[in-house]
Amino acid sequence: MSGQHAPPPETGLRTGPPIDPSVAALGCQSVTKTFGAITAVDDVSIGIDQGEWVSIVGPNGAGKTTLLNVLNGFYDPDTGGNIYLSGEDVTTEPSYKRARKGLGRTFQGLELFEDEDVLENIMTTRAVKQRPNLLSALLFYVGGGRRTEAENMRRVEEILDYLELWEYRHSTIGSLPLGIQRRVDLARSLALEPDVLLLDEAMSGLTFDEKYDMVRFLADLHEKEGLTLVMIEHDLEVVTDVSQRMIVLDQGAIIARGEPDSVVDDPEVQRIYTGVE
């Protein structure tokens, strides 16, 4: 795919003023990811400021999820690119370390722990936050394990209340509708208390009401908690309503970025979405 698209102009909307990735809440510099002959992400540099809500959009196969996977360490970038989290170069760090440093993530395909109930799913990531000690876990009553678990459960119940999931706490994942599963996915990542949350099509497959609820929760998290959100989303109406900035990917490369209202009016963006020249 690399090289098939025209290079963006040096100035103006198509390149925008990128925030220096090395000082951003989350950023990447010159990141490329190839799979054999396919270039899924092509020399991408982005910087997302603390407290921003940024949406990444683009047609299917544009490289959005791959970019997210590179940012959170699921994939290693090809040689030369760098990933930054809160100003720290985390390129060589595995995904679990990035998560512990405050990079949360939800999944397009959900990837919930299917055999567990809602409470256990969220308690699992809460456990990561607490870094449990083996001895205190084994001894439980005398080693502080009980106290830690009670604190975790208290916090998880707060998250369940916040996301209006209380009635589902003992439901197994498979028995829940998609809208609730997406909310559980969000709850699970919130239990880690992330600074930056990557949302991979968190509203995909949801009804209008479910989307509305999800946007309401995310807007609350963004405004009241100051959470930095990076969202992949196909629904341009939602994107333009909630995002402060928008990045458009096509064939692995950034073709536009900036304020949503300006970006959606860009002829190149309209072309890739409508196919009309």
Binding site: Y96, A99, R100, L112, E114, E116, T124, V128, L192
Partner: peptide, 13 residues
């Protein structure tokens, strides 16, 4: 259950 998502959620496999 799901080692890939577990790692992304902060678990050292």
């Amino acid at each position: 259950e799901n080692d890939l998502s577990a790692q992304v959620l902060g678990i050292n496999r």
